[in-house]
């Protein structure tokens, strides 16, 4: 069977689900971030696959570039916040940071 759009989409679907699994089950903030990176990469596979099979639509590539840029910015901010949490709490487990409850 020739490799087509569906093959790429299946990889994207699996990667997205893996990312979600990581986000749900991980406690370590940085591990959650890694799960998120998987989700964003799955998105990019979608964009580029749709671009390739939708008449080499360059918009998909542009979208993927923006996703990469924003992922970098978001990772930088998230890691800065994680560092700050570490200075305050001495650990970075998301569900142990829970002074706020009600």
């Amino acid at each position: 069977m020739e490799i087509g759009l569906t093959h790429y989409l299946i990889i994207s679907a699996i990667l997205f689900s893996l990312g979600l699994y990581g986000i749900i089950t991980r406690k370590h903030a940085i591990m959650v971030l890694m799960g998120l990176e998987l989700v964003l990469n799955a998105t990019n596979i979608n964009f580029i696959a749709f671009a390739r099979y939708g008449g080499m639509n360059i918009e998909g590539h542009i979208a993927a570039i923006f996703v990469i840029i924003l992922a970098a910015a978001e990772a930088a901010i998230a890691l800065a916040i994680v560092l700050n949490i570490y200075q305050n709490f001495r650990h970075v487990n998301v569900d142990e940071v829970d002074n706020l409850k009600g």
């Binding site: 759009l5 569906t6 989409l9 749709f50 099979y53 939708g54 008449g55 639509n57």
Partner: peptide, 16 residues
């Protein structure tokens, strides 16, 4: 997702 991805009609066009 896989079910949706394999059964749906996507926007496609001949690519150059």
């Amino acid at each position: 997702l896989i079910m949706i991805f394999t059964t749906s009609n996507w926007y496609t066009a001949d690519s150059v």
